[in-house]
Design a protein around this nucleic acid. Structure first.
Lengths: 241, 241
DNA sequence: GTCGATTGTTGATCGAAATCAAGGAAAATA
DNA sequence: TATTTTCCTTGATTTCGATCAACAATCGAC
């Protein structure tokens, strides 16, 4: 729950291989010289699930690229009610350029590997490299689209539709090129409590809806985590996508 | 409901005065030469409430700056359920650079004045001007923050808290520098139906909660639109901010 | 002004999800 | 292995907001 393993990075290709896809992450936007420069101050970290990357209170002093695992972004009310406002997968970039106060908490939802950079070093590089700034701009726009998609889910969908939408979101992430009719298998990166906080529901309601999808033959679940989606098409119907 | 008045812009100062504040809008980021260039192709438009600026289906062929009024961004499900995923005020920028498919509808919530630019001309300018790209990046990050704030409201707040949060949002926009204890007066830019679509509620529930705030002396309402907030502090308590 | 359409309010009833409660399965710790 | 703790499921009951229904107020057109 609290162990933290820091490995100084001396392996640029591994550091950056994950960053190429989907206009996310920073390494793909840098030239070899910039990469070398950044590698000097970057560190790879293995974070156990539950570890906080960015606090809701204080501004972060570093940025990070996710190499593996899932990070949840949460907001909390004074009385403890919580909402997950975003999920980040490899090779997403974690951090908030150009502003300090962000009032958002980033926490490892699973065990996570990240590549961390000191804020100052990367800020300097952003100022120099328009391509890097553009890359971060694109990720911000992607996250904005995802947030707005989820607002529709939170505001207007039923519990059954919400749970199906969540499973579909994860399935889509496992294989972005997926055909709408195939079978998908994955491990849930979130606990029932996390799913509830993501969907604006209680854990009991999430549990009941998952049971319903199981008994109706849309999915199978082993060990509460390992999920088989038999028909993505049927799942999409349930989600009203 | 469908009239549309186009006035070719020949008045650069008026065009751009609104764009200076809050890192929103594009004009403040341009040099005199770029402004002159952009003014050649820009048009000022007066749009009646209800007019669609951007369709949920086809990609937009132009961008716009809001000069006055309020624009709502909506998402719609196949069965008609709707969710407002963003509200834009002057001098916000409307449009989606770097991507065509956006699956979002922009509609004038009130009568609106905008300054519209052909997409192509502004895209060219974005490519040339890092300052302009940066300005748009900042607006995207602001909108992302707002979207995530609202996700907490949609997912975890009660109906009473949602309505109070909405009124607080509008009040804050009327006067961003507002003291937490003062009285605020404004005209609601949204109908009850719009408020319901913004909060993920029905119009009946919105109406009942507004009535409750009235009878409890937190606000006064005239003609269903003109609102007086007697104590912003009390409103914040209701919203659980 | 009258008429009709739209928009908003209020009341009665219903239902989906929350809450309360208990117990079982899996994982962590000793 | 035994034991504790965490996580998940299932059932009973309650509650908040949705739905159904009627009516009032406001606005626009004539």
């Amino acid at each position: 729950m609290t162990s933290r393993l820091d490995i100084h990075n001396s392996d640029i290709p591994v550091l950056c291989r994950a960053c190429e896809a989907r206009h996310r992450g920073v390494c793909g936007a840098l030239n070899p010289q910039q990469l070398k420069e950044l590698a000097k101050t970057s560190t790879r970290k293995a974070l156990d699930s539950g570890i906080e990357l960015v606090s809701e209170a204080e501004p972060a002093e570093s940025y990070a690229n996710i190499l593996s695992g899932v990070v949840k972004l949460t907001k909390t009310m004074a009385d403890g009610r919580q909402q997950i406002v975003g999920l980040q997968f490899a090779p997403d970039f974690i951090g908030r350029p150009f502003r300090d106060e962000n009032m958002i908490r980033a926490e490892a939802a699973t065990d996570v590997h990240v590549c961390a950079f000191p804020k100052r070093a990367l800020d300097r590089m952003i100022a120099q490299s328009p391509e890097l700034g553009h890359r971060l701009h694109l990720q911000a726009l992607n996250e904005l689209d995802e947030a707005r998609d989820w607002m529709l889910t939170l505001g207007r969908k039923t519990a059954a539709e919400k749970v199906a939408s969540f499973l579909h979101l994860i399935a889509r992430h496992v294989d972005p090129e997926i055909e709408a009719k195939g079978t998908v298998v994955f491990d849930l990166p979130l606990t029932r409590a996390d799913i509830a906080d993501f969907l604006g529901l209680t854990i009991e309601t999430v549990s009941r809806q998952i049971t319903k999808l199981r008994t109706e033959g849309v999915i199978a679940v082993e060990n509460n985590r390992h999920v088989t989606v038999f028909s993505l098409e049927r799942l999409e119907d349930r989600a009203n996508l």
